[in-house]
Write a protein that binds this DNA or RNA. Structure first.
Lengths: 319, 319
DNA sequence: TTAGTTTCTGAAACGCGTTTCAGGTCAAGT
DNA sequence: ACTTGACCTGAAACGCGTTTCAGAAACTAA
């Protein structure tokens, strides 16, 4: 049962049926009633894929993300979704595990018109590749793209990193451990962390106090243990997430060791529970902005400031 | 640039080009080389939407979920994704806010062939509706469907509820508060909670110790406050999630009140941090199973047992 | 050598809705 | 009476890849 069948049954043409379905002008009342009757009688609904093909639009936005356990991504996703839903767009989850081949595959799906746009919450392929593939559809990334001509919604992090480190310095810490999800060389965010650290402390982060590939609570725990096993006793840990900091804290607790000063990130529930200082990167807002950029047809960058948050020891949920 | 253009340019027909692209048999080496040369020269890629239309399959699975903040849903989503990715399927996020109209809209998209299948992590429309719409595509729900003929992947919760309440009874609690996300009348899960409660404690849950619509940490906090303001002092709280229990705990802490015995659910990080007893409902596994069911063309139900978890006070992340 | 089987190939139909364009009607304006 | 413009309609083209089917060529087996 397709639009041509309805046309025949109603005695009108497919064009007229299409007009009725889409509430277009230039349809007589007679035609409208006749077509609607047949549509109802045969319980017809048009085929979305055919419509998409015809219109050249799918209303699907692909969202590439390295993994799904990380609240960084779920935060952005939520932001995208809250913006996409009222606009009538759906989001398609595209897990990448930072694998460039998989990401290329997604970029090619963009060429193949499977998505109207792609948002990279993070990416393993080069920015050059992203820039080139813009010829085939809208692409948005979620970090500062520097001079690359590509749309981006990202957090301006440097001020909050500086604030966090300055605060830490005021607490007179000496040996700062850093737990990152990706290496300085791989990630612009990690580079920023490094830069802020150097600016405040006057020297580069100590390598044997650095742990990378740390994303979860468990990994925070293990990284703390690894420091201890290597006889490293930092008096502060700067972690890539509150959960990570919470994991580290638990290691020291479990072993009756003094807990270093902890700074988390992402303003997660764990940080709230433990009253950790944290940095809120406004991911929800980033997601919203990224979606808006995805629908525009010129490249543009927008950023929001992230915020260093110190909590007092008493708590009360916002309300 | 479409398949017909390539056909003309290579001197072969569209059928042959299609065969080359899809690595079909019955193509001569000459033809293959000629076509591949033109494809490479013009950097041609086929249009996915046209292919989907032609094949009648999109490789998209719609996943309906009431909201996205809740770890119940993110857990299932992760499970679905881990299974869907290797199978070459993508998942499309369909937020519903329990709104039946919106859900109907998604069901109609299934009719319109926008998705190969839909998984309802939860639903506001009736089971009758779900059963009826199976005529238009595979539908899976994530709770026990009783006698309804529909595929389902769900958690068998009753044993763990009983275990939790029995354990609680052994701690000789008297006044049990219950924090649920949905009312007894609305949710089968809530009904189960009620049933187990009655079986163990011999009476129905006290209404003025019941709070519904509780999902987050903040709401847990507020619900505890609401109890207190109503001069209710439960000696135990059975919460619908660890985060909720953590929120309640914080209220008592903040006000220097004795903390009731707490039982959470979902085995969330907050519960791990606070060493709360919890119930793990195996959502990741449910997601995986739901995806498998979505691809089958007969209805089938599978379930996994949930587990009541008591923790000792010392912790060590699994590894 | 004959019958039978593979291998190639392409025209045309198919999946299905949208849009353009030409042709026609009818009422308002001059 | 004549132009103008708004309204209505449908054939055909378009978006684009897949599949069927028939015909031809080439090879195998008897």
């Amino acid at each position: 049962m397709n639009i041509h069948d309805i046309a025949k049954l109603s005695g009108y043409s497919a064009a007229t049926v299409s007009r009725v379905i889409n509430c277009r002008k230039y349809v007589s009342d007679d035609a409208k009633l006749a077509v609607q009757k047949v549509i109802k009688e045969y319980d017809y609904v048009p085929n979305d894929v055919a419509r998409d093909l015809s219109k050249g639009k799918t209303h699907n936005i692909g969202v590439v993300m390295p993994h799904t356990k990380h609240p960084y991504y779920t935060g952005i996703i939520n932001g995208i979704m809250d913006a996409a839903f009222p606009a009538g767009y759906r989001i398609v989850l595209l897990p990448s595990m930072y694998n460039a081949d998989i990401e290329m595959n997604y970029l090619n799906r963009l060429r193949r018109k499977a998505y109207d746009a792609i948002i990279f919450t993070s990416h393993g392929v080069s920015l050059d590749d992203l820039v080139n593939y813009q010829a085939y559809g809208s692409i948005v990334c979620c970090h500062d793209p520097g001079n690359y001509k590509i749309s981006a919604a990202y957090t301006e992090r440097i001020a909050s990193y500086l604030a966090a480190f300055k605060w830490a310095k005021k607490q007179s810490v000496h040996d700062v451990a850093i737990f990152l999800s990706r290496d300085f060389t791989l990630s612009a965010t990690s580079q920023l962390t490094r830069k802020a650290f150097i600016e405040v402390f006057g020297h580069i982060p100590t390598n044997d106090l650095l742990r990378t590939g740390v994303v979860t609570y468990e990994e925070g725990y293990k990284s703390a243990r690894s420091l201890y096993e290597n006889k490293k006793y930092p008096d502060m840990i700067f972690a890539n997430g509150d959960d990570i900091a919470a994991g580290a804290r638990q290691f020291y607790l479990d072993n009756n060791l003094p807990i270093p000063l902890l700074i988390g990130q992402e303003n997660q529930l764990s940080g709230q529970l433990l009253r950790l200082p944290t940095i809120d990167h406004n991911f929800h807002e980033i997601g919203k902005l990224a979606f808006e950029l995805a629908l525009e047809n010129k490249t543009r960058q927008v950023s929001v400031e992230s915020k260093f948050i110190l909590r007092d020891q008493k708590s009360c949920p916002d309300n």
